[in-house]
Amino acid sequence: MATNMGTVRRRLLGGELRRARESAGRKAEETAAHLECSMSKISRIENGMSPVKARDVRDLLEWYGVTDPAQVKAVMQLHKDAQEQGWWEPYEDQLPSGMATYAGFECEAVALRAYEPMFVHGLLQTEDYARAVISAANPSQAETVENLVRFRMQRQQVQAERDEPVQLWVVLEESTLRRPVGGREVMAAQIEHLITAAARPDVTLQIMPSAKGAHAAMAGAFALMEFAAAIPTVIYIDSIAGNLYLEKEREVRAFAQTFDLVRAAGPDPRKPPQRSRPSQGRCAHHEHHHRPPPGHAPGGPTRLAQEQPQLRQRGLRRSRHRRAPRRSPRLEGHQQAPPAHRPAAVADLPHPHRHQRRVLTRAEGGRSGRETVARTSR
């Protein structure tokens, strides 16, 4: 599939105009005054973020002293190519500011590296997951939600039809998979989709365990988009306040280093993720790192009196050495039977972040003794 190249061509055009201005010794302020526009518009034109009229391109080349016919022809051809309409044009009125530019970059990138702490990356989302995410941000706007869902699915279709799809490397936080976006069934289907996608040769997926603690990218989500030829890498940062594009060499180098640190801290991407148990709402990482103790039966308590006699002895020993309760003066002379101890059921309470064992005593109604209950939290 031949993808639209307008966004990249616009960046190339902006780069040519910037180099021509710098060679002529012109400042951005002078250029803005010459075109009778703002400096921010000159910046957007030179960064490829804003279209420019053919008349303005010719005027700028003349003002910069570019008179070589071959160079003028090449620049004007870039301008013509940059006017090509993108596949996202039907959605542009409802897209967030700057998203059309991102769609253009994405379908032209040869490699995309992304860190996602909150959501599954858009190119890896199922339709139901995408609908749940978009609906949460656009409540009571059913038509807008459906249009944005179609736009997101179209992004995936564009990549699937490319002769050489973008090489996608995504690092997701474990908490992303634990959040039941759209409910358990939707999330279970999303996890299965991720497992399938991770098997593709153009996708590398890492799940950053929560147990890793702090790491270099905790400031927020970002993406690096790399292009062919001499087109510079673009950094994309999305937030509620809007999106930001960075392409200065110093900025690109800093984000590239951050991503390298994050993926180095994550698990080996060559090991495929394991399927989770959707009914329990657990992800692959939880199944691997938080396995239940021996004898555990999912969905109910575990009887360990015979399988783990040492646990029974431990409970009895603790109960035997427990300090006797102080008698109240009102009960003096009252004969009380000594407490009888016997082992009981052990409930397994899975917990992802702590491991502790405690012994509780519980008076049984209608019985003279006390029951020792050992409970394990994981």
Rank of each mutant, 00 (worst) to 15 (best):
V158E: 09
C107Y: 02
E127V: 00
G14W: 00
H351L: 13
D128V: 11
D128G: 10
E16H: 07
E30P: 08
R330E: 15
F119H: 10
R370G: 12
A103K: 00
R21Y: 01
I191Y: 04
I195Y: 06
E174Q: 07
E249G: 02
E62N: 10
A70L: 10
L123V: 00
Q274L: 15
L17A: 01
A214M: 06
R44P: 04
D260R: 02
L60Y: 05
A109K: 03
D128H: 10
E22D: 13
R277S: 08
E84M: 08
N147L: 14
D81L: 11
L177P: 00
G6L: 05
T372M: 13
V203I: 12
A219G: 09
A219D: 15
G48R: 05
H121R: 09
Y64E: 00
D93L: 07
V170F: 07
I231G: 01
P343S: 15
M1A: 02
A229V: 14
A216Y: 03
D163C: 12
A74L: 12
Q77A: 13
R44T: 04
Q313C: 03
H321E: 15
R162N: 03
W88M: 15
I45N: 08
W87L: 01
V203E: 04
P339R: 02
L244F: 09
G315N: 05
Y102F: 12
L148K: 03
I231K: 15
V72C: 05
R18F: 07
R354S: 14
H193K: 14
V52K: 03
A74K: 11
P69C: 08
L17T: 03
L123A: 00
A374N: 04
V66W: 12
D163H: 06
T302R: 07
E192K: 09
R9S: 13
L244P: 05
E22M: 13
G104N: 03
E116D: 12
Y64K: 07
H353F: 15
L331W: 12
R354T: 08
M99C: 01
V373M: 04
V120D: 00
L95E: 02
E247W: 07
C107G: 01
V252K: 09
L35I: 08
S279R: 06
A264I: 01
M99T: 09
L13W: 07
S377A: 11
Q167N: 14
H353C: 10
P51F: 12
A74F: 06
S328W: 02
G369D: 13
A324G: 14
A347S: 11
E161H: 11
E36Y: 10
R367T: 05
Q154F: 06
D202V: 00
Q157W: 14
Q306H: 09
A199S: 13
R10A: 01
G369Q: 07
D59M: 15
E185D: 07
Y102I: 04
A28P: 03
G295S: 10
Q159M: 13
R367K: 15
R323I: 12
V72Y: 03
R179M: 10
A111R: 13
R367G: 07
M118L: 15
S43F: 02
S43D: 15
T144M: 06
